[in-house]
Simulated scan of single mutants.
Amino acid sequence: MGHWEIFLLFLIIAFVYSSVGFGGGSSYLAVLAMYSLPYQEIRLTALICNVIVVVGGVYIYIKNKQISWKKVLPITLVSVPMAYLGAILKISQETFFLILGITLIIAAILLWIKTETKNEEKVSQESKSAIVRNSFLGGGIGFLSGLVGIGGGIFLSPLLNLMKWDTPRKIAATSSVFILVNSVSGIFGQLSKLSVDIDYFRILSLCLAVLIGGQIGSRMSLKWNPLVIKRMTAVLVLVAGINVLTKYW
């Protein structure tokens, strides 16, 4: 595999993100976008790596009963088919990189914003209007996720924080589930129209990197500051977004 440094970068990203309960999909995409790789491979790789890293976190959230399914289901049920539709939509490489660049810049802004969330004791029940709103929100982010090749948590989590949707823990759990189901849906969409130019050895190598990094990070439980991680990611994603726009547009 050419560009062996990508393997190391993916391992480090998975290690850091898994230690604070994140997936790291946006950073995988940001790194891959800086190399002249087939855009279909970029999307598929980021989605598979997302699943590998986040599935352990989802299991822990479910085991610890930290997921409010009544609030999660309206978001995810609509997002899954929309992510698949976004993944199978035929777009040119130029259009993909244009959308990717804009998406990364918007994501960087959302990641940088510091938000206050609900207190554990002040969480209210979902109203019917809130369920409809959450469904539309999940569907829109799901479609964009499938189109670009991310799980969508990079958009969902900051928006839910801005909306004071729930406690930080519940938002993190919801985002993990959202990332997992949308990544799986996006993978199925990508597999339905793969190109022969895809380097499967490179994809498997990067999957191994995030598996190693993710397993080590999740077991070490380091005391990283989530805000610092978010803002470091924001800078990386912003640079990648600007680089994509200047390179391909």
Rank of each mutant, 00 (worst) to 15 (best):
V210C: 06
F10Q: 03
I154P: 04
V123A: 12
L8Q: 01
I99F: 11
I67P: 02
D166W: 07
R202S: 14
A87N: 05
G241R: 05
N243Q: 11
L47D: 09
G149T: 12
F201Y: 14
L194H: 04
I150R: 07
S176Y: 06
K114W: 00
L32H: 08
V237R: 05
G149C: 12
P81D: 07
C207E: 11
M232L: 10
N134G: 09
I60A: 11
A173K: 03
I141L: 08
I42G: 04
I212T: 07
V53W: 04
K230C: 05
A173Y: 03
G152K: 13
Q215R: 15
Q66E: 15
V55H: 06
L206T: 06
K70A: 07
I131A: 08
I203M: 15
S36Q: 14
S195Q: 14
A234W: 03
A87T: 07
V16S: 02
L236S: 10
I88Q: 03
I179G: 04
F10R: 04
L11H: 02
I229R: 03
S176C: 09
F22P: 00
G57E: 11
G149N: 11
V148W: 04
S195N: 14
A108F: 07
N182Q: 13
G86C: 08
I102V: 12
I99L: 14
L245W: 04
K90L: 10
S205D: 11
A240R: 09
M1E: 06
S36K: 13
N50V: 10
L11C: 12
F136P: 00
G138Q: 06
L245V: 08
S192A: 14
R133Q: 09
I99N: 01
Q125C: 01
K164S: 10
I171K: 08
S19F: 01
Q40W: 01
Q66D: 14
G146D: 04
V237W: 02
V148F: 04
S26C: 11
T76Q: 02
Q190G: 01
N182E: 13
N225P: 00
L77C: 05
D199H: 14
I187M: 11
S26V: 15
G2D: 13
I212L: 15
V54I: 15
K65P: 01
N64V: 03
Y84K: 02
I131H: 00
G214E: 09
S157D: 08
Q125H: 03
N119S: 15
T103S: 13
L204A: 15
S175D: 12
L111H: 06
W249D: 06
T117N: 14
T233R: 00
G153V: 09
T246W: 05
I179K: 06
L204P: 01
S185H: 02
H3E: 14
P226I: 10
Y248A: 12
K122R: 11
Q215E: 14
L8A: 12
L162E: 04
G217R: 08
S176D: 09
S218V: 13
S27A: 15
I75Y: 00
Q66W: 07
V181Y: 09
L227W: 01
A46G: 08
V72R: 02
I113E: 09
S157P: 05
N119Q: 14
